[in-house]
Design a protein around this nucleic acid. Structure first.
Lengths: 198, 198
DNA sequence: TTCAATAGTGAACGATTCGTTCACTAAATG
DNA sequence: CATTTAGTGAACGAATCGTTCACTATTGAA
C-alpha cells in the first residue's frame, strides 16, 4: 500500500492532504483569514512541511487552485439543445463557486498583481479556463452542426463569454449567480449572440 | 481657511489625506502588502486616527473604494457614433484600472465573502457600477435615437456588459485590457448584440 | 481673550502570526 | 539491518496587529 491509513504520510500523499485541508479551511474562514498553522493542523502535518513546499500563503493558494481545477469533473456530452446544455453547465459552475472552488478563486485574484510571476499566473488561469472553454466549444459545435448556432460563434471570446460572466458575477457580488441570473445571461446575451440568423 | 497648509488636520480634511495615502500605498505595494502603519506614515497621521475611523484594513479599503469611485470624473457626452463612444469610455476605464483604482478593486474583491456586510458591499458595488451604467446607457440611447442600436439593447445586463467584461479581464489577468482586446470585445460581442437589424 | 471640549500624535504595549530552526522519529532504500 | 530521506512538533525572533495613554493642537463658546 502506498496509501497507508495510519502512520506518517510523505510526498504526494501528504501534499494532497495539505491541499484538501487548505481548501476546507478556505471554505470556512476565507482566504483573508487563512492561517498556515490552521492548514497544517487540519492536515495533521507540521508547519515546516508546508514551508518546505511553498514559500508563503500566496504560493500555497496558487498550487491549491491548480489542484482544485484539475480535480473538477469536466466531462459533459452536449445534447444538441444549446440553451439547455449551457444552462446545465453554468449551474454546475455556479455550484462549484459555492464552496472551496469559489474561495480559492477569490484568494488567487486578490494576490494577483501586474508584478506577479506571469508564467505561474498563466498556468492557474489556464487550469481554470481551459476545461470550461472546451465544454462550451463542444456545445456550440453541436449547435452549429444542427443549424441552431451561427458558425462564427466559435470565436474564443464568445466561447468564453458564459463562464466569464459567471466569474465576474461571483467576484463582484461575493456569491454565485442564481438560476434566474443564469437564465437572464443566456436569454439576453449569449443566445441572441450565437443564434443562427434565419 | 478650513484647509490650512501647516499644522494639525482634522475631520474630513484628515480623512481625505488618509484616503489619498491609502490609494498611493495600494498602487505601490498592493492590498496584500498594505500596512496600516505605512498608510498612517504616508498621510503623516497617527495610527490611532485610522483605527478610530475604521476597525481594520478591510473597512478602510471599502471606504477608500467609495472615495475613489466618487472622485472619478464621469462626465461624458455621446457623439452618436456608438462604437467610438464605447471605445473611448472603455479605454478610460482601463486606464483607471492601471493605478490605485485597480488595486482598490482587487483588494475589495479579495475581502468580499458571502458572510460580509451585504449592505456595505452593495454600496461599494453601486458606487463603482452606477456611474458606468449611466454613461453606457446614454451612449446606447443616442444610438437608439439615430437608429443604429436596437431599442431592446437598453436591458440592464446589456448596458452593463462592456464594463463587466473590462472588470473580468482585469481581475483574471491582473492587468487592464489592452486596446486590441477592447476592440475585440466591441467587435465580437457588444456591437453584434446591440446593432439594429436591418 | 480665555478656557473647556474635541480631535490628533506618537510611542509603547501585549497578542498574533509569520517563517525558520532543530532535535527527534518514521518510512523508504538496498 | 543500516543508511538516507522526509516529516513532526516545539521553540524562536521578527513583524504586524489593534489598543492604550500622556501629551498637544484646534475649535468654538463664554
Amino acid at each position: 500500500m502506498t496509501e497507508s491509513t495510519a502512520g506518517r504520510r510523505r510526498g504526494d500523499d501528504l501534499e494532497r492532504a495539505i491541499f484538501e485541508a487548505a481548501l476546507e479551511e478556505l471554505a470556512e474562514v476565507g482566504y483573508a483569514n487563512l492561517r498556515m498553522e490552521a492548514v497544517a493542523a487540519r492536515a495533521k502535518a507540521g508547519k515546516a512541511s508546508l514551508y518546505k513546499r511553498w514559500p508563503d500563503r500566496a504560493h500555497l493558494i496558487r498550487a491549491a487552485a491548480r489542484y482544485k481545477a484539475t480535480a473538477i469533473d469536466t466531462a459533459f456530452e452536449p445534447s444538441g439543445a444549446v440553451r439547455d446544455d449551457m444552462e446545465r453547465v453554468m449551474r454546475r459552475i455556479a455550484e462549484n463557486q459555492n464552496g472551496p472552488g469559489g474561495e480559492v478563486l477569490r484568494g488567487w485574484v486578490g494576490e494577483l498583481r501586474p508584478t506577479s510571476d506571469e508564467e505561474e499566473a498563466e498556468k492557474v488561469r489556464e487550469a481554470i479556463e481551459q476545461p470550461r472553454i472546451r465544454v462550451f466549444a463542444k456545445i456550440l459545435e453541436a449547435g452549429i452542426a444542427n443549424g441552431t448556432v451561427r458558425p462564427e460563434a466559435l470565436h474564443p471570446r464568445i466561447v468564453n463569454l458564459a463562464p466569464s460572466m459567471l466569474t465576474q458575477h461571483f467576484l463582484m457580488k461575493g456569491r454565485p449567480a442564481s438560476e434566474s441570473v443564469i437564465a437572464e445571461m443566456l436569454d439576453e446575451i449569449v443566445m441572441p449572440l450565437i443564434r443562427a440568423r434565419d
